[in-house]
Simulated assay, not measured.
Amino acid sequence: MTNASSPPAGTAHRSPAARVLSSLAHRWPTALGLLAMVLSAMDMTMDRGTNGADGRDQALVVFLAALIYLATAMTGRPGVVWILFGLSVVAVTVLRVFDQDPWPAMVAGAVTTLAIGLVSDLPRRPRLDALQIPAMVVFGAAALVALSLSPLLGSLLVAAALIGHATLDVIVWRARKVVARSLAEFCAVLDLTLGVAIVVFALT
């Protein structure tokens, strides 16, 4: 007879290192978010000039996060978010490879998505889904305004927007709604740590 309090079969003799690795494997969105933050921080460090790192370059991160959340909410299928995330990364990468400013295309996409969302049933859907419309407006506007400010003020505004979106990420993660939980975890880690990193770079 097996003791009800005994560990599952196959885990009793696992080493502490194996258990740590197993735990980390289940937290892959967190690891991916940290990796994305490190890459972004390295980019800011390499571009650092006499006035310090310019966090305004990371405004596109929060803009796209809000846009992807809104587009996913419109579909009503949380799992679609990873597809939209991948497409956005590819689109931005291709535009930059061809030395094109990604902002006009992203803004046009956001305006189009907002317009469709407003005339769809999204405003009458569950509150957290409908919230993505004003979230897109607020975070999108913050990202765009930051581009017109000084490097210091713009960086701090981008950082505030990222940390604010991290709060939304956590709410979505806990509710298990709007987007896939794995994406919400990834986004929460990226948004929060990148926001803090921008503040540190801007003030040092």
Results as ranks from 00 to 15, higher is better:
His165Gly: 08
Glu185Asn: 09
Leu157Ile: 11
Cys187Leu: 13
Leu131Gly: 11
Val138Met: 08
Ala143Asn: 05
Gly195Thr: 04
Val137Leu: 10
Gly195Ile: 09
Ile133Gly: 02
Ser155Ile: 00
Val145Lys: 10
Met106Tyr: 06
Val196Gln: 08
Leu168Thr: 13
Asp129Ile: 06
Val172Trp: 00
Ser150Tyr: 01
Asp99Cys: 14
Val107Leu: 05
Val97Asn: 12
Pro151Gly: 09
Pro126Asp: 03
Met106Thr: 13
Ala184Cys: 04
Leu149Arg: 07
His165Ile: 12
Ser148Phe: 07
Ser155Glu: 02
Ala161Lys: 02
Leu157Glu: 10
Leu95Phe: 06
Gln100Arg: 15
Ala159Lys: 01
Thr113Val: 10
Ala161Asn: 02
Ala115Asp: 05
Ala184Thr: 09
Gly109Leu: 09
Ala141Asp: 10
Arg176Gln: 14
Gly117Tyr: 00
Thr167Ala: 15
Thr167Cys: 14
Ala105Asp: 06
Ala105Cys: 11
Arg96Tyr: 14
Val145Gly: 04
Leu183Gln: 11
Ser148Met: 11
Asp121Gln: 11
Gln132His: 04
Gln132Ser: 07
Thr193Cys: 12
Pro104Thr: 05
Ala143His: 08
Val137Thr: 03
Leu149Met: 09
Ala110Ser: 13
Pro151Glu: 13
Ala110Ile: 07
Ser120Trp: 02
Val179Ser: 04
Ala184Asp: 08
Ala188Asn: 03
Leu95Arg: 04
Phe186Pro: 12
Gly140Ala: 04
Val97Ser: 15
Asp99Thr: 15
Ala188His: 00
Val119Lys: 10
Ser155Thr: 01
Ala130Phe: 01
Gly109Tyr: 00
Ser182Met: 08
Ser150His: 05
Pro151Lys: 10
Ala188Ile: 07
Asp101Pro: 04
Val189Cys: 06
Thr193Asn: 11
Val111Arg: 07
Leu162Thr: 09
Arg124Asp: 15
Ala142Gln: 03
Gly154Gln: 06
Leu194Pro: 01
Asp169Met: 00
Leu192Gly: 10
Pro102Cys: 09
Ala175Met: 03
Leu194Gly: 01
Ala110Lys: 06
Gly154Ser: 02
